[in-house]
């Protein structure tokens, strides 16, 4: 038996069939276990899991707003410390405080709150579930949307052809905070993701994991391809898997031979406007990035 059997993320949630965000939540809780408190930013995951009176969560969970999952979690973490010390609450239990937000809630509107929480040294893990756009509000671009991907606010027009800026490198910015643990992950590599969650939770202080999560609705592909596409993102070098532990950078998965980005791009409607030259351009860009990382 490879994976823990406890299901702390219940079925019946309203995520689209094949939703990658649901897979993030399920894997996360399998790795973290029941002594966990979740602070969830507004976004697909929050909305699909908690329409009153139904919740998919079997761990204590709080949602307050969109841009402040990290700040809310700061309060939770501080309260646990104070209540343990002053009133002997929670016995000696180690409680995992985990904030989770989408790419919009993390890289854009929640960026200040995240930076503050990481810099202050709270004992918490922040999970950025990255589906590369604002999905909950209908697929608008975020700073985590990749170059040339079409979204409703970066449409493929005749003059501007999809997103005109490269994807913001949030994990590296978090690493620049000097926190003890930063990692990237992808749901298509569950052992890797869960190992990283476990490792992060074994370290005291602020931790950050960016987990790539293909989104059938936003990326435009048939739902059964969610895992396959995530795998291709990694195999092509578009989304490298690494961890940075105490400043030490390490690739955690190295494709034997990188696949052409074309295989990945061709599967998704958000890239269907790309010409061969566009694909060539993206390939070059990825080649350069991979070279820097030693991929």
């Amino acid at each position: 038996m490879q994976f823990p059997r406890e299901e702390l993320f219940a079925p019946g949630h309203r995520g689209c069939a094949g939703c990658g965000a649901a897979i993030v939540a399920r894997l996360l809780l399998k790795a973290a276990g029941k002594d966990t408190i979740i602070s969830n930013a507004t976004g697909c995951l929050e909305v699909m899991t908690t329409p009153y009176p139904e919740t998919a969560w079997r761990v204590p969970w709080i949602h307050t707003a969109f841009e402040n999952a990290a700040a809310t979690a700061s309060g939770v973490e501080a309260a646990i410390k104070a209540l343990k010390r002053k009133r002997g609450k929670y016995k000696d239990k180690k409680i995992n405080v985990i904030a989770i937000g989408g790419d919009g809630g993390t890289a854009d509107i929640g960026f200040q709150s995240l930076s503050g929480a990481m810099e202050r040294g709270h004992d918490m893990l922040y999970i950025m579930y990255d589906n590369e756009a604002y999905m909950n509000t209908g697929i608008q671009r975020s700073s985590s949307t990749p170059f040339m991907a079409a979204t409703t606010t970066s449409p493929a027009g005749s003059k501007i052809r999809g997103e005109d800026r490269p994807k913001k490198d949030v994990a590296m910015i978090m690493a620049a905070h000097g926190i003890p643990y930063v990692a990237t992950a992808c749901i298509s590599y569950p052992e890797d993701f869960m190992r990283k969650v476990k490792k992060a939770l074994s370290i005291e202080g602020p931790k950050f994991i960016q987990v790539l999560q293909p989104c059938t609705t936003g990326w435009g592909y048939p739902p059964e391809k969610t895992i396959e596409i995530g795998r291709l993102a990694v195999e092509t070098g578009i989304f490298p898997l690494y961890e940075i532990e105490n400043g030490e950078f390490r690739i955690t998965y190295k494709p034997a031979k990188r696949k052409p980005v074309k295989e990945y791009l061709k599967m998704q409607k958000r890239y269907r406007h790309l010409t061969d030259e566009d694909i060539e351009r993206i390939q070059k860009y990825i080649d350069e990035k991979c070279k820097l990382l030693g991929l």
Binding site: S39, A65, A71, S74, G75, V76, A82, K89
Partner: peptide, 22 residues
């Protein structure tokens, strides 16, 4: 004492703490 980076976070952290029972 959480030295937050903004009042928005101050209130968010108070909410998180109060929701934990503090």
């Amino acid at each position: 004492y959480i030295k937050v980076e903004s009042e928005h976070s101050a209130m968010s952290a108070c909410i998180g703490a109060a929701a934990t029972g503090a």
